[in-house]
């Protein structure tokens, strides 16, 4: 297939960027989207031009590194799919494809399509953990049974890959889905219970500090999340937050 690509080019964090147009040809429908980008970069390098910088690593949909806004949607048109798992068979010969970085004040552009998502790390650092030392002298793993339903829900929340598609797609650039996934996971497990109040208060405080927008429940994040993290988690976090705000001293 032959394609026209409109790609955001920005040389550095403090430089103004703009959309540039490129053509690629002989793209196989079995290629992944990033392999198509490889083809483009190969072409650019051979022509003596600057290749497009983009983040990617595992290319199997789990590391959360890839982050492209493709044709107006985070990770492209398919549901439950990261950019690296999007294949060119989802496009047609002759298509024009817009490719942009995640856009949010809390995700500043590093170069071209690469953004800085360390704000997510700082939110986790604010409380997204259980305070247990790694001594190995904890109680036996089976000492506290966890109802299967809760374990499964905690797992579902924990499958978040931290890619930031929720923020990218949210009309308000809100990080609620990401934060609530971690809050939920730990709130659903007995191990996370002792710190649940402090955790939610601190994580939300950090989230606000990072400059993410507010949740207006459009539900776009849930639709675009490559791991299908549910809005139920946001409700749970709201509950946790209310409860913590009321009961904390």
């Amino acid at each position: 297939m032959n394609l026209t690509l409109k790609i955001w080019r920005q040389a550095g964090p403090s430089v103004i960027g703009k959309m540039e147009t490129y053509k690629v040809s002989d793209i196989s429908p079995d290629m992944s989207f990033l392999e198509m980008m490889d083809v483009l970069n190969d072409q650019l390098i051979r022509d003596g031009k600057d290749p497009v910088a983009f983040d990617h690593d595992c290319r199997e949909g789990i590391c959360g590194m890839c982050s492209m806004y493709i044709n107006g949607q985070a990770h492209g048109p398919n549901r439950g799919t990261t950019t690296c798992q999007l294949h060119m068979r989802s496009f047609k010969d002759g298509d024009t494809i817009y490719i942009e970085p995640w856009r949010a004040a809390a995700f500043p552009v590093i170069k071209d399509l690469s953004v800085d998502r360390s704000s997510f790390d700082r939110i986790i650092q604010a409380g997204g953990y259980v305070s247990v030392n790694t001594s190995g002298n904890t109680q036996d793993a089976n000492a506290i049974p966890v109802p299967k339903e809760n374990a499964d829900k905690a797992f579902d929340a924990a499958t978040c890959i931290g890619c930031g598609a929720c923020v990218a797609t949210c009309t308000n650039s809100s990080a609620m889905l990401f934060v609530s996934a971690k809050v939920s996971q730990l709130a659903l497990l007995p191990q996370g219970d002792p710190e649940r109040e402090l955790r939610v208060l601190r994580m939300v405080e950090q989230m606000d500090k990072e400059g993410f927008g507010n949740c207006s429940n459009t539900g776009a994040c849930e639709v675009e999340c490559p791991k299908g993290i549910s809005l139920e988690n946001i409700a749970r976090m709201n509950r946790e937050y209310l409860r913590a705000s009321v009961t904390s001293e």
Binding site: K6, M19, G72, P77, Y98, E100, S173, S174, A220
Partner: peptide, 14 residues
């Protein structure tokens, strides 16, 4: 929270 807007956005999809 979003100082630079998308050049092409398709929010109706979600």
């Amino acid at each position: 929270a979003r100082p630079v807007k998308y050049a092409y956005n398709k929010p109706s999809a979600n």
